[in-house]
Design a protein around this nucleic acid. Structure first.
Length: 408
RNA sequence: GUGACCGUAGCUCAGUUUGGUUAGAGCGCCUGGUUGUGGUCCAGGAGGUCGGGGGUUCAAGUCCCCUCGGUCACCCCA
């Protein structure tokens, strides 16, 4: 029996899980305040949803998918990303017009694990469907930016670019292909192999950076309309005081993107996998999946990576009050008292069985409670002895006043 | 898929170079130091297939081979 979690997966326990809980709540709250409703789609889809949506020639589809046949002979795939699934659901459910959806969930890609790259990883994201205006792109970028700041990741830089519309890319691809072909002998074999299949992808190759330094870029070959869209995007970032940098060779690994693409990079985080989020516009995806034309834009944030980038920080406290029941005959009263505290929003706990006072204090300490409230002889006066566990200070407090007392 | 480094107690590691008695430390855990007080302090205790398999040897944690696992980087992407 192999008792290990599978390669590239993690168990999240306290105290690390406290930071997870905090960020999941922040996300839920922030996305709701921006008007995004919760959307939940299956963890697996028919393989073709990703093959067609994400793109046959992408790394993700070519070699990173967890694909399996179920007992009914269907080819299914664990979602490597969530956008294709949400768009599939929008089409299937016959929705029309604008839909703003937020999600949070595990994604799966078969890769060699390393820092910030897991086989099961958690993404937070939004999809803004049915809106072609650049303000939708801007809202999405702002939302992700705000989240990262609230998470505690100061100093975020948003890398932005425009890769144009498919029409722009016909001419550009031709130009790029011939430019790359002229220099094929200088390129890595990986890059050479992509000249025919997916020339745009060559642009973000790390090893070929030197060669690519003066290559033609997509943003310099836009139609009037897409150029205006990009200009308005940059202007909007300025107006929102979002720290950004134009990254002319930023392209995305998923085929469905057009026009706007962006990534979030924390300036002070030096690992190889330092992109904590990214996204862009994908006006063509719905059609690829067999629906009608649907302008859309969205973003995904890598929660695992955000937490790695945050580094080791003192974990937030998880418990406010720990009840110590000094007189076992008061157990029922203690239980009611705990319920009142919990109803008042005070995080409260106590040991389940009958244990010595010493053991109960020890439990309180191990759970990292802020204070202990002792329920014993003072209960007959309606009071509890409250001890601050970090200072050791003790005082008598009227039981009903404890929630308010905690707020001080 | 490619490469480098690393696997000894729950965790962090020493011991491996130069093979040699019952494999160690710190932290953590459990018990005790009498009444209703944790954390600190003192005393005791539990806990190890030295990742696994094979080989060399009188003798292997230590040397050789294979294998599994981990980490980081390439690649890819959140």
């Amino acid at each position: 029996m192999n008792l290990r979690a599978p390669k590239g997966t993690d168990d999240v326990f306290p105290p690390e899980s406290r930071a997870w809980r905090r960020l999941l709540r922040t996300w839920d709250d922030l996305s709701e305040r921006y008007g995004y409703e919760l959307v939940m789609t299956p963890s697996f889809e028919h393989t073709e949803v990703f093959a067609r949506g994400v793109g046959e020639a992408t790394e993700v589809v070519e070699k990173q998918m967890y694909t399996f046949e179920d007992k009914g002979g269907r080819s299914l795939t664990l979602r490597p990303e969530n956008t294709a699934g949400v768009v599939r659901a929008y089409i299937q459910n016959g929705r029309t017009g604008v839909f703003k959806g937020a999600y949070s969930g595990a994604m799966y890609r078969y890769e060699r694990p390393q820092e910030g790259r897991r086989r099961q990883f958690w993404q937070l994201g939004v999809e803004y469907l049915g809106e072609s205006h650049v303000d939708a792109d801007l809202e999405v970028i702002e939302l992700g930016y705000r989240f990262l700041l609230e998470a505690g990741l100061g100093d975020i830089e948003v890398l932005v670019n425009s890769i144009g519309d498919p029409a722009d890319r016909v001419a550009y691809n031709e130009l790029l292909t011939s430019w790359l072909t002229d220099r094929a002998d200088l390129l890595s074999s990986d890059a050479r192999g992509r000249i025919e299949s997916n020339p745009l992808r060559v642009l973000d190759s790390k090893v070929d950076g030197d060669v690519l330094g003066d290559s033609p870029t997509p943003a310099d070959h836009l139609s009037e309309e897409t150029a205006a869209h990009y200009a308005a995007l940059v202007e909007g970032l300025e107006a929102r005081e979002i720290t950004y940098r134009k990254a002319p060779r930023l392209v995305r690994g998923l085929d469905y993107y057009n026009r706007t693409v962006f990534e979030y990079v924390p300036k002070l985080y030096a690992a190889a996998q330092n992109t904590v989020g990214g996204g862009g516009r994908y006006d063509g995806l719905a059609e690829l999946l067999g629906g009608r034309h649907l302008p859309a834009t969205g973003l995904a944030l890598g929660l695992d990576r955000i937490l790695v980038a945050l580094g080791d920080r003192p974990p937030p406290r998880a418990l406010d009050v720990f009840l110590v029941i000094a007189d076992p005959s008061l157990r029922a009263e203690a239980r009611d008292f705990a319920r009142r505290l919990r109803d008042a929003g005070v995080r409260t706990d106590f040991v389940a069985g009958e244990r010595s006072v010493k053991a109960q204090f020890k439990a309180a300490d191990r759970r990292d409670a802020a204070v202990v409230a002792v329920i014993g002889e003072e209960w007959s006066d309606g009071k509890v002895t409250v001890k601050d566990l970090s200072s050791g200070e003790e005082r008598l407090v009227v039981a009903g006043d404890l929630p308010g007392w905690m707020d001080r």
